[in-house]
Design a protein around this nucleic acid. Sequence first.
DNA 1: TACTAACCGAGACGGTACGTCGCGTCTTCAC
DNA 2: GTGAAGACGCGACGTACCGTCTCGGTTAGTA
Lengths: 192, 192, 192, 192
Amino acid sequence: MSDHRSGPVRSAAAREAILDATAALFDRVGYDHLTIEGIAREAGVGKQTIYRWWPSRGALVAECLVGRRLFPDFDVPDTGDLLADLDTWLDTVLGVIEAPSGGDLLRSLVAAAAEDPAVGGHLSEGLGIERSLAARLAAGVRAGQLPVDTPAPQLGEAILGAVIVQSLGRSDDHAALRRLVRFLLRSPTADA
Amino acid sequence: MSDHRSGPVRSAAAREAILDATAALFDRVGYDHLTIEGIAREAGVGKQTIYRWWPSRGALVAECLVGRRLFPDFDVPDTGDLLADLDTWLDTVLGVIEAPSGGDLLRSLVAAAAEDPAVGGHLSEGLGIERSLAARLAAGVRAGQLPVDTPAPQLGEAILGAVIVQSLGRSDDHAALRRLVRFLLRSPTADA
Amino acid sequence: MSDHRSGPVRSAAAREAILDATAALFDRVGYDHLTIEGIAREAGVGKQTIYRWWPSRGALVAECLVGRRLFPDFDVPDTGDLLADLDTWLDTVLGVIEAPSGGDLLRSLVAAAAEDPAVGGHLSEGLGIERSLAARLAAGVRAGQLPVDTPAPQLGEAILGAVIVQSLGRSDDHAALRRLVRFLLRSPTADA
Amino acid sequence: MSDHRSGPVRSAAAREAILDATAALFDRVGYDHLTIEGIAREAGVGKQTIYRWWPSRGALVAECLVGRRLFPDFDVPDTGDLLADLDTWLDTVLGVIEAPSGGDLLRSLVAAAAEDPAVGGHLSEGLGIERSLAARLAAGVRAGQLPVDTPAPQLGEAILGAVIVQSLGRSDDHAALRRLVRFLLRSPTADA
DNA sequence: TACTAACCGAGACGGTACGTCGCGTCTTCAC
DNA sequence: GTGAAGACGCGACGTACCGTCTCGGTTAGTA
């Protein structure tokens, strides 16, 4: 007895080549200008092999995103000093997206998220917002550095959102973002 | 003194028709699926007339944006109650982007901003963030409802950013956004 | 042994439809006004399918020409009476090119030949000059009705050339052409 | 009493510039690729000035043709030796149309004649067929070197036609044309 | 001398066609 | 019986010219 079907099984090599090609081209040319034919060419694969397994360009990008093929990990350290840790994270993130064509990378991802729900659903996750940023904020709450009712996930998304809005505006104001973070984390009692 | 050249002058009728068509199609089909040929057809205009005056699809959208042809005005009332006013604004905004294909509208705009610097440069402005939201926050500062060092523009962009991130994630959590706003506006002395 | 590549094969149906459409449109609208887009539309085919296989509009016309899709066959009978046979041929040819828009047909073909070497190379052949006219002249030589050193192919081309020159001049002088043919075939000994 | 209209009169300078530009561009790029806008640009003239005075591209070319701006004069000498004179003429003509892009010149002219009646009507004339070739043949008739009933104009056109047909075929067979001329001029009594 | 109408350059306009690229589907052949 | 290769109908791209039109500036002639 066997529920194995006959014939070759999905080619893992092809799958890898396709995802690698997607990530490489996404990096090189951005989301618009990312084409199925280009991916197939780059991966040495037939178009049909792509269409067989992924419904859309966006689904490919989404899979690259969750597979961490697109961005480095943006981890937030935990030294105990919440503000300093967030500054470190901000430096890392801004460092990447200000690198030559790094901003294009973030904007490309936003474009992909806007166009394709599959990408959108993994945007925060793919950038490590929940895993790192919100987690660090939650740790800050536990440590008493933030109010107990702090909505950590939303706060993380607001910070990410501020970075995105600034990137969309092609502006590049580190100081403003630092000021924002400082304001967001202001100690409610410190001013009292 | 004269930098006038002779010859026919730019047709105002064509310009209007093109911008109207752009806004109408943007609404109807979204940013991807928005084509120059479609705009020309809708406007009853030759393609070349578009290419003569605008360098890209994005530039057209940007001009619609600054000309307030794309979104209703998202004004923030000023009743004296900052939190209530922001709730009102949030209701308005979320009401629009949750309308059938309203979310598509915001996401389309984000896609346009990601692709084209001209749109990006006018994103906040076109949504009235500076004019209305940041201005209301600044008024709150003057009224003593927010700390004097509140970075109002950045705070406005963070709120917009949170809305955008949520929209990109195709989530729809009013309550979370309200909680965020409440948290952001928490009175530093109220908790003391 | 194999220079076969894998993959789909050229569609015979598309090829037929394209050539038919080309011939039909050539007839209907002439060589200028013959457009690739028009052919594609008429044939129910994508433009790219045309560009994939033919380098130019002229190449299409040339292929119609050699495939005898453009002109009826201009055969020269052989009754033994050379002069009468040529008169018959002349009647046929002039009958066609004087039909409403028949002259346009010949001139269109000349225009195509002038613009595109592929057409030019098949002009005489496509009109049956070598196959019919020159062959009949050669038969006349063998029958002693023309000198043995008669350059039959060139003579055929000269007759065709006279028809073409007259057609280009939009003149319509049957009698002159008959006189010319009579003169060209004048028996060297008959006058002695 | 006066039917003079007021205002400036047609600019001779513009007319000259346009015809010169037409001839120059015809030479340089051929009849197809000859555009009204290109002529206007080359001549430093507004398009409307062209459309005001000429109905079509062909009319411009025709006027260049009759104004002898396009071809050198193809004169036939008259040394008394008809055959030698025609050989000389043939050498001249073939020399021009075999020059680099000289064949393009003749073919361009044929294309123009095929497309535009105005050009067609002046083709023979513009090439000097009637004025020179037919006249020389007629002189040959008068000198008894050709039969008295020789249709000189048609014979001239047949010779021109043979040259054209050969040029359209992109062939280049001097000897064949010489043989043809020899045959056409064969003395009817010499063989007797 | 001033008026005025036609000509001039320049070029914007609504169009049509160009030749190219990518889409998503379908078909063939080799492994 | 999968997977590469790629042809297919389709639609949009951005460009070149078409022939018409509208400008401001520049001449002639009247008046």
